[in-house]
């Protein structure tokens, strides 16, 4: 084909071995603008086959990355203005407009940086959702949670996501043993190769339940912890952590099917769970009721489903106030 012929002639030409006939041929070939692109493509290929010395590309790349990071493009040029001009004020206005526009653009880029760089999956109260990440990993998000996934580079160099709330991860094992890291607030992170686990990271504290495989936890204090299947690690906001063996996985994955799993759970804790799950504030003013413990599995897609069950089970009143719900024992049984 002609492309092979052209390639040979071009390589001869780059090597300085072309005849006058070949040169004339190339000149005509180049009159077609599309061929200009081919010319540079072959020039690049020719260069890559004829290295002249060891270019330290890594060092240069490091310097370039610094420029990319620190010198954002639309920066208003700052020049010293010539004085003595009658149009000084007008120039000053023009410069300040330019500077403001640049500043706004920079601010905008900064404010929306996170939207640009990350894709965020969010769930509302009472809602769960399943997401498949680019590397095949499956993430089930519990209600009132968010997962940020980098738009660029995910799976090519590292696999890192950021979680707020609760989620179950079924991480795909990659051939090159690439790590998968779940980061949460306060420098708490879970690092795995390929496994299944549930991370809980809310205002109350953090908790990781491992159902399969092996994970490494990086605790805020810099401690590291390896978990085995069935292990639960609970980390309080104070930084204290506790490793226990879970009797059943159900408690940690029940939420996936809108189940509430109570096992000797106090009413205070139940109220907290409702608030986390549905965003409804629940108060239990009577200390005696607050300390009552309940057990059982309840399926509840809405908060009302659960309130109904609780009202029947404990024979209590569910009173809807303006900004919260109050659970009380009836005065006249």
């Amino acid at each position: 084909m002609e492309t092979l012929l052209i390639k040979r002639i071009l390589f001869d030409f780059f090597d300085g071995k072309a005849t006058a006939i070949q040169r004339k041929y190339l000149e005509e070939w180049l009159t077609n603008e599309a061929n200009g692109e081919t010319y540079y493509q072959y020039l690049d290929e020719w260069e890559s086959q004829r290295p002249q010395f060891a270019v330290d590309a890594d060092k240069a790349l490091g310097a370039y990355q610094l420029i990319l990071e620190n010198e954002q493009p639309p920066v208003a040029p700052s020049k010293i203005l010539p004085v003595s001009s009658s149009g000084l004020f007008r120039k000053w206005v023009a410069w300040s407009v330019a500077a403001s526009v640049a500043l706004l653009a920079m601010l905008g880029a900064y404010v929306f940086r996170s939207q640009l760089l990350y894709e965020t999956h969010r769930t509302a109260f009472g809602q769960t959702s399943v997401h498949q990440l680019a590397d095949g990993t499956e993430v089930t998000l519990n209600a009132n949670s968010s997962l940020r996934v980098p738009r660029f580079g995910f799976g090519s160099e590292t696999r890192e996501v950021f979680l707020e709330g609760e989620g179950e991860f079924k991480v795909t094992h990659k051939v090159d043993n690439q790590r998968f890291i779940v980061r949460t607030a306060d420098h708490f992170q879970v690092e795995v190769l390929g496994t299944e686990f549930v991370v809980y990271a809310r205002a109350k504290g953090k908790r990781v339940f491992l159902s399969k495989g092996k994970v490494k936890l990086d605790l805020p204090q810099g401690q590291q912890l390896y978990m085995r299947p069935g292990n639960v690690v609970t980390v309080a906001n104070s930084g204290r952590y506790r490793l226990t063996q879970a009797a059943t996985a159900r408690r940690y994955v029940a939420w996936k099917d809108h189940w509430f799993y109570f096992d000797n759970t106090s009413m205070t804790e139940v109220a907290d769970q409702i608030q986390e799950q549905f965003g409804i504030k629940v108060l239990v003013p009577e200390p005696k009721l607050a300390q009552r413990r309940i057990a059982g599995n309840f399926r509840a897609e809405q908060a009302d489903d659960l309130f109904q069950v609780l009202a029947e089970l404990l024979n209590i009143n569910v009173v809807k106030k303006r900004h919260y719900i109050e659970l009380t024992t009836p005065k006249h049984p």
């Binding site: 260069e47 890559s48 004829r50 590309a57 790349l61 370039y64």
Partner: peptide
């Protein structure tokens, strides 16, 4: 820009 650098820098210096 970064990937363009990785791809062509060495050949361009050459």
């Amino acid at each position: 820009c970064e990937l363009l650098f990785r791809r062509y820098y060495t050949n361009l210096v050459n």
